[in-house]
């Protein structure tokens, strides 16, 4: 089955937790872009979502860090943050698909870790809150280590994404893909509040062009220069790998100072299976 839905979206917690801090035009453009993605997802007939995501010391700590982790749980809960203004809820997992993904990875020379218990923070819950408010589709989360150096390389993210895309296309399910995180931001660090819009536009242009060569060439130092949070874009790069060069469209980009983040949303729905 072709991939039925694909998008990428930032997950800055301010989008819900302190929404009114942003200028209304920026906030409305971002909320409108999420709404467009929600409509595309609903129209796609997608039954299962693979969410390429990151977390913020919610589950993982330095006692055991893997580059990638695939969730095999029957269900997940989140968000862990009571202040996020998103109701804590339960989301169904898809351990069968998760196992298919793991086996495909292991057969193709990438060995993610896996977890039968995971909680979600804003990194996963915020995009789901907008895109799937009823929380009524099964999901498989794929976590990327974006916090502890060394993070996986862009090439490795691309390779992982290609495997995920192959599994999705072979599956009898109607699988959609969501990548979350980024763009430039430096949460909790010295450059908190600094947004590098030039970096953000260059990155999204490569995503829109489906330019896997350019995306795979991003070095850790380039991502780090756009802020510690820019490592979350490894999930976007994996999405590009999964889509194998499919072109996308930037439907919103705002450098939102009160949210301290370059916030971008992209769709890759055009031409996907209806």
């Amino acid at each position: 089955m072709p991939i039925t839905f694909a998008c990428a979206a930032s997950h800055a917690p301010g989008i819900t937790a302190w929404a009114d801090a942003a200028p209304a035009p920026q906030r409305e453009r971002i909320q409108g872009a999420f709404e467009r993605l929600r409509q595309e997802l609903d129209a796609s007939g997608t039954d299962t979502l693979v969410v390429l995501t990151s977390e913020h010391w919610a589950n993982f700590f330095l006692d055991h860090i893997g580059a990638f982790c695939i969730g095999r749980a029957e269900r997940y809960t989140g968000p862990i943050e009571p202040w996020l203004k998103i109701a804590r809820t339960e989301i169904k997992g898809d351990p069968t698909l998760a196992t298919e993904l793991l086996e495909a990875c292991y057969d193709n020379d990438i060995e993610p870790s896996f977890a039968h218990e995971l909680e979600f923070d804003h990194g996963t819950m915020l995009p789901l809150h907008f895109l799937m408010p009823k929380m009524d589709r099964a999901i498989v989360p794929v976590f990327f280590n974006t916090l502890a150096a060394p993070q996986p390389s862009a090439q490795r993210a691309l390779a992982l994404g290609r495997i995920i895309g192959d599994v999705a296309r072979r599956s009898s399910r109607r699988i959609g893909l969501i990548a979350t995180g980024g763009l430039s931001h430096d949460p909790g660090e010295r450059n908190h509040g600094v947004i590098d819009s030039d970096f953000d536009h260059r990155f999204m242009a490569a995503m829109a062009a489906g330019n896997c060569v350019a995306l795979g060439a991003y070095q850790r130092a380039e991502l780090a220069a756009a802020g510690a949070g820019a490592f979350e874009l490894l999930s976007w790069i994996a999405l590009a790998g999964a889509l194998d060069g499919r072109k996308g469209e930037v439907i919103a980009y705002e450098a939102v100072k009160p949210w301290a983040t370059g916030v971008g949303l992209m769709t890759f729905a055009h031409g996907l299976a209806a």
């Binding site: 010391w57 916090l147 949460p187 909790g188 010295r190 908190h192 509040g193």
Partner: peptide, 25 residues
């Protein structure tokens, strides 16, 4: 200490963001 550990820790102490940023800078 990682910023995403330290900033939540300081939030538990009601440390305003400007004060936090001054401290780490």
């Amino acid at each position: 200490v990682h910023g995403l550990l330290l900033r939540p820790f300081t939030l538990l102490h009601q440390m305003p963001e400007p004060d936090y940023l001054k401290a780490i800078r």
